[in-house]
Computed example of a mutant assay.
Amino acid sequence: MRKALIEFRNVSFRYEENSPWVLKNLSFTIYENEFVAIIGHNGSGKSTIAKLVNGLLFPQQGEILINGITVNEETIWAIRREIGMVFQNPDNQFVGATVQDDVAFGMENRGIPREEMIKRIEETLQAVRMSDYRLTEPHRLSGGQKQRIAIASVLAISPKVLILDEATAMLDPKGRKEIMDTVSELSEQRGLSLITITHDLAEVVQAERVIVMNQGEIWAEATPREIFSKRKELREIGLDVPFVAILAEELKQVDVKLTKEPLNQEELLEELWTLHSRT
């Protein structure tokens, strides 16, 4: 049985005293080595969750535990060593004159010895397939390349949790897929817990579990396949259903009997080929 790594216990949060609650009595658990997607429309509370996990915000009610330690002003610096975050705009995270300087920055702040820093720079740039850009100025990179460097910078501090907060929102579909494939592979190799926060359902197919937020509460919590089957309900709360799910729905309406809810194009083609082989 996997150990609980992040626990929200009856957490409520609002930005101002008399403003509406952004999160309402929220409880969930994320485990070691688990890949969880948190999705929801703009304003559903999903990005607030990321800020609470990292101690950028603190709840007014309830408590948050990271690796068994309650998040508060006394523990926040120790907890931030366990959490790595990649945001929507990587330009906001760059501080170094070159790629290697940027990857080194977080390690320098933690007092990691130089020899170990050099080793980690090489390992993390290789992991995100950016070794050839080591001496490049970050602003000369493409959007996808910048996100790879942002991920490398976070991985270099060896966190237990990697959080992507709308990290692929500025990329095209090909770039999004490449980044999600990369982080999924890295989380598996390094034993990281991975949390992706997004409004794009196409991004969640590799997750073990999906938490759907709506108006500050958990609307649903299930596997991606189970979530994709709720097409009508997802539209009603303002989420776009992936094209594959829409196509599967249309096929069912013309009496094409799919045996399972396809998560991607490959699964849909496999289903159709299987049906064709039987006829």
Rank of each mutant, 00 (worst) to 15 (best):
L125I: 02
I69K: 11
A50E: 06
N109E: 12
L56W: 04
A127D: 05
Q100G: 01
T124E: 02
A150L: 09
V53K: 06
R148S: 03
Q61R: 15
A152M: 10
Q60E: 15
Q93C: 04
L125W: 01
G106Y: 10
D101Q: 14
I149C: 03
D102F: 01
I121K: 02
H139L: 02
M107L: 13
D102E: 12
L52H: 01
I112F: 13
E115S: 15
E116A: 14
V99W: 00
S158L: 12
G143P: 00
T70P: 10
V86M: 06
E108D: 15
H41E: 09
Y133P: 00
I149M: 03
S131C: 00
T70G: 08
L57R: 09
D91S: 10
L65Y: 13
A152P: 05
N109Y: 12
V71W: 09
L56T: 05
K146E: 04
W77G: 05
V103I: 12
L141K: 01
K160Q: 15
H41V: 09
E73Y: 11
N42G: 06
F94I: 07
A50L: 12
E122A: 08
G96F: 06
S142F: 04
G144T: 05
N89R: 12
I64R: 04
A127N: 03
N92S: 13
V53W: 07
V95Q: 09
G111Y: 12
Q145S: 08
I149Q: 01
Q100E: 15
I38L: 11
S44Q: 08
K119S: 14
G106K: 07
V128M: 00
A78P: 01
I112R: 09
W77Y: 14
F105D: 09
M117L: 07
K119A: 11
I39A: 15
L125P: 00
I118M: 12
E137C: 03
G40N: 02
V161F: 05
E122S: 06
A156T: 03
K146L: 05
P113L: 13
M117Y: 03
Y133Q: 11
G62F: 06
G144K: 02
Q147E: 03
I157S: 10
R114Q: 14
A50Q: 05
N54G: 11
E116Q: 15
N89W: 09
S131F: 00
Q88K: 05
K51C: 10
E82S: 12
A78L: 13
T48K: 08
L141D: 01
S131T: 01
L155Y: 04
